[in-house]
């Protein structure tokens, strides 16, 4: 797999305020790459630097291929119609009147409506059609499904998957963790302009050091006083024959629990481990840090 985007030691300042600190990452061709972070973490600035919209003070950005950018909701004059926008962008990109994209994204149905009267979903579809008008290799999507209903979201997700299948690289910023988990191959999490995590969603939920919950059903009630001195177990909930413990180290905590249960001659009937969700992991990393 070839590299689509290389960002190396990127530094962006607004006056004396440094918003991106030596940011380094790469996105590979044909992958869906998510850029996540709390508000003000530097996602949009990073995207705009890569898109060539913003200048930066230090570092380098190499983009291998043509880029297309999905605009945000307030990005066009209110009185312009969908077809006029599409034609304007087509003409400036020297693309002759190919209307297939309008058909594909269902923009033809509202092509003569003014931008201000379009619904959120219609605007998103129009923005995507415009982003693809010059057949780019790399597509930037900033909150692509924000404000969409379930049907619109599913349709757009299918389109994004279709673009990936067609070999396009997709770089997206999103607050929707379910969307990120279902669509993205890799995730970068920014915190205060620094890279706090880079890897797959699986890696984020499984390998990142954070809290998990172990729920054990036992034959007899479990006396929680046995766990008072435990270093592995942070909190416990005990209800009849159910014991739930919160731990940061599943292996050691489980070993300790099973040892105690064996000493008490109490049988284990069921064990369930609940790992943190992607959203919880994201909150831990993006807001509090490791």
């Amino acid at each position: 797999m070839n590299v689509a985007i290389e960002v190396e030691n990127l530094v962006k300042k607004y006056g004396n305020n440094t918003v991106l600190h030596q940011l380094t990452f790469t996105a590979m061709q044909g992958e869906i790459f998510a850029l996540l972070g709390a508000n003000g973490a530097g996602k949009t600035t990073t995207l705009e630097c890569i898109e060539g919209i913003r200048s930066y003070q230090e570092g380098s950005i190499h983009v291998h291929g043509k880029i297309g950018v999905q605009l945000q909701s307030t990005s066009l004059p209110g009185s312009i119609t969908a077809i006029e926008v599409y034609k304007l962008f087509s003409k400036w990109n020297k693309i002759k009147g190919d209307m297939t994209l309008l058909e594909r994204f269902g923009v033809s149905d509202f092509k003569n409506k003014q931008y201000k009267s379009l619904l959120t979903g219609q605007k998103r579809r129009l923005h995507l059609a415009i982003a693809l008008v010059h057949n780019p290799d790399i597509i930037f999507l900033d909150e692509p499904t924000a404000g969409l209903d379930v049907e619109g979201r599913v349709a757009l997700h299918n389109e994004i998957r279709g673009l990936k299948e067609a070999g396009k690289t997709i770089i997206m910023a999103s607050h929707d963790m379910a969307e990120v988990e279902s669509l993205c191959d890799r995730i970068a999490i920014l915190r205060e302009g620094k890279l706090a995590f880079l890897g797959t969603a699986m890696e984020l939920t499984q390998t990142y050091y954070g809290e998990s919950r172990i729920i054990i059903r036992t034959r007899y009630p479990f006396p929680t006083r046995n766990l008072i001195n435990s270093k592995q177990v942070k909190t416990t909930e005990n209800d009849q024959n159910y014991l739930a413990v919160i731990t940061e180290d599943i292996g050691d905590a489980l070993l300790e629990l099973l040892t105690i249960l064996k000493e008490l001659d109490n049988d284990v009937l069921d064990i369930k481990i609940e790992r943190a969700t992607l959203e919880q992991r994201f909150m831990e990393i993006a807001k509090e840090g490791r």
Partner: peptide, 13 residues
């Protein structure tokens, strides 16, 4: 003074 200028930049206008 709006996001429209971003549309110009990304649209190569």
């Amino acid at each position: 003074s709006s996001e429209i200028k971003k549309a110009y930049k990304v649209g190569k206008i």
